[in-house]
Design a protein around this nucleic acid. Structure first.
Lengths: 239, 239
DNA sequence: CCAAAAGTGTTAAAGTTACACCCATGT
DNA sequence: ACATGGGTGTAACTTTAACACTTTTGG
């Protein structure tokens, strides 16, 4: 879709930021980038959402896919535009201004950013270094201090995820491994909706769905009764 | 909030478009602008969402409020950012390009627009002329051919409204007059969700809500049994 | 035998759907 | 008298919430 021949010029007015969420079996995590400097100057040190300026005539959705692909290696990930953030003060924090003008190499006014929500499976390719940055997963409950309004963006995206997962349960399975236990799935739901879920009600409700199919495989070498594995079958969803 | 002293320069990269919805007692309507030329050149003739470029350092939310205020005279209206639209081809239709370059008075690349959803009460001030344009209400089922991707934007906003009205019923009452009948309210719900609603179930469901309070007033001079009026009382909503 | 997590049913309450008739008013 | 819309109840079904004990396995 994107060619090497495209024009990589940009006007410093619109950027794309991606809230890439994943799940490690216990916690919901968000992928953040940091300057890869070994001994970073404080002004370079705040973590950020992965993102960049939008190229002239580039489709914002393509840009988001690019960013996600660069960091995670995936080409088929769930991604959805959330909304734009454009407060004139969002790029004003002195801690961020220096970084920004260095990175972009010119004076910057207000930048409108289009935030995307993406959910992926965490794997060993999702900690890539690129262009002087490195990306790492952070538990959403233990996020560091973030540049710009990125903390707010993440908090709002998380609320959106809660709605999204009840309206479109498929997104849940974009975060879970291909085979997962009921406990993993329940932990994920609990992280998303922010409260505990009764085990028995969860079994009934979720495991009764035709698109969650039990496998004839069980956990190995666990010091307790082994849990069954399930898989998600998209073709058994309706409407 | 906005002063006359603000800087009205802009870079032609980001615009704001408002999907302003209203209800006339029967149909859901959207406020569109047209060039007010008496005998309009065809190239000026497609209807558009009310909107404009974003001024340098202007808050997008403020811009949306301004646009809505200019057209409807209201200062307290429900408004919510929907999302950004930025396809590189969205401003490419030759029917629109001439108008756009005339209006903005320079060559234009791709413009990212931030779409807002607003709901207002229709009144006699909501057909204002301004700056060579005039605004008029159109039934959402009978929209004219629209410039750019404005037709798509409206269709997507209407889906959003359906979700919004079940999650935040207050928005319904932003469209209804201060006193309304059960029939009006039911028509509005039907327009929003796109199908008929059973009268008896509607009474039970809606009229059982504590925030919908019956008045001791009835319709006058109608050629059938007079319907009761109700009002919305925000203070009786919970959570 | 102990620790840890798996797995499994019942009941009550609330909400949703489907469905039909008589009433009040103006012409 | 008739046309128009107003107003009302019940039963079946579905969904949600609350709640506790026995099983399996490894150490």
């Amino acid at each position: 879709m994107k060619q090497n021949t495209i024009d990589h010029t940009f006007d410093p007015h619109v950027s794309i930021d991606c809230v890439i969420l994943g799940f490690d079996g216990e916690s919901l995590q968000v992928l953040l980038t940091r300057h890869a400097d070994e001994n970073p100057d404080a002004r370079y040190s705040r973590a950020k959402l992965p993102g960049r300026l939008l190229y002239t005539m580039e489709n914002p959705d393509d840009a988001a896919n690019d960013i996600i692909n660069q960091l995670t290696g995936t080409r088929n990930h769930y991604v959805k535009q959330f909304r734009a953030f454009g407060s004139p003060t969002r790029t004003n924090d002195p801690k961020d201004v220096l970084w920004l003008e260095n990175a972009i190499n010119q004076k910057i006014g207000r930048i409108v950013t289009i935030a995307y929500l993406s959910v992926v499976k965490i794997n060993n390719r999702t900690h890539r270094k690129f262009a002087g940055y490195e990306a790492a997963w952070y538990k959403v409950n233990e996020m560091p201090d973030l540049a710009f309004d990125h903390g707010d963006i993440i908090r709002e995206v998380l609320k959106e995820l809660e709605q999204l997962s009840s309206l479109q349960p498929q997104v849940i399975f974009e975060m879970l491994p291909a085979k997962f236990t009921a406990l993993q799935m329940r932990h994920l739901y609990e992280q998303i909706c922010g409260h505990e879920i009764d085990v028995r009600n969860f079994s009934k409700l979720v495991l009764s769905k035709p698109y969650i199919v039990p496998l004839d495989e069980w956990e190995q070498n666990v010091s307790h009764r082994a849990a069954r594995y399930y898989k998600f079958q998209a073709s058994k969803m309706k409407k």
